[in-house]
Design a protein around this nucleic acid. Structure first.
Lengths: 141, 141
DNA sequence: ATAGGGGTTCCAGTCACGGGAAGGTCAAGG
DNA sequence: CCTTGACCTTCCCGTGACTGGAACCCCTAT
């Protein structure tokens, strides 16, 4: 299989697969013409990666998961630990977003949205954000 | 005020303020020694930016919001529209994360987390992800 | 005079790719 | 045989919103 076929079947752009090879996440044999050659095993790994990435695992998580995936004697506890860490991260992110959402929704609700310049949203934003600690703007959405 | 003082009061790293100047989001006068000089108005703008960024508005959103903030005759509807677009984005992100969370939680629940190699998480990941459309791995967490 | 804690610029790196250029390869059709 | 068009290759640049670090200047206090 050439890259496009495996890409389509795994559900990843070809560019991404080349990138994954670049960073050592996958390897690919080369044909006589220099083209990458993939087989069913490669396809499985790439599909694995596609699914893991879609579930929000970082590349480094994926690297660890792939290693466990290939280690037939791994303990399921190891996998579960990675998953649970990731779940915790997702929960933190959810809480953050939910809080943003609530604040913004309340501000938008209070805003008449008319032609006059009085705007509760701008009023809120213009308050000094003393309650936000330095660096709190990191990693927004 | 020099940059560190305004940075501490606005709740932003000094580096970020220099960056904001770089991209034309704010401007700063310079003293005879070449140091940036900030006054209360600058502080307000920076605090405004800190708060808006903390609420997840993009830099470009912030640029628009700042322009409206400085335009005393703006219509509140304009601000509201930006906020509502942003709320919609947040809602999409929330839904995505929630879906990831549910899936992972279910997989983790089904995983015994013991020393044996059977792991529902890896089993799930190793299925061909045909249901995920190409590019679905974009913008994870 | 010196030590420290500011300040300045510029360059590089982050993360996970995506876009696009320049050029090689392959199968099918005229 | 030649061309067309789809594919493949590598390489480099750009993204967003910063962050870290180097190399250097300035100001105040001891």
């Amino acid at each position: 299989m050439n890259i496009k076929e495996v890409a389509d079947q795994a559900g990843l752009p070809a560019k991404t697969i080349r990138y994954y090879e670049d960073i050592g996440l996958v390897r690919a044999r080369r044909g006589a013409n220099g083209y990458r050659q993939f087989d069913a095993t490669d396809l499985h790994k790439l599909a694995f990666l596609a699914r893991a990435r879609a579930l929000g695992f970082s590349i480094e998580d994926c690297r660890a998961l792939l290693a466990l995936y290939e280690d037939k004697g791994r303990a399921s506890a190891d996998v579960k630990q990675i998953a649970e860490q990731h779940i915790t991260q997702i929960e933190e992110k959810l809480a953050q977003l939910q809080s943003m959402h609530d604040t913004l929704t309340e501000l938008a609700r209070a805003c008449p949205g008319n032609n006059r310049p009085d705007c509760p949203i701008l009023s809120d934003l213009s308050h000094l954000g003393m309650d936000e600690k330095k660096g709190s703007t990191k990693d927004p959405i």
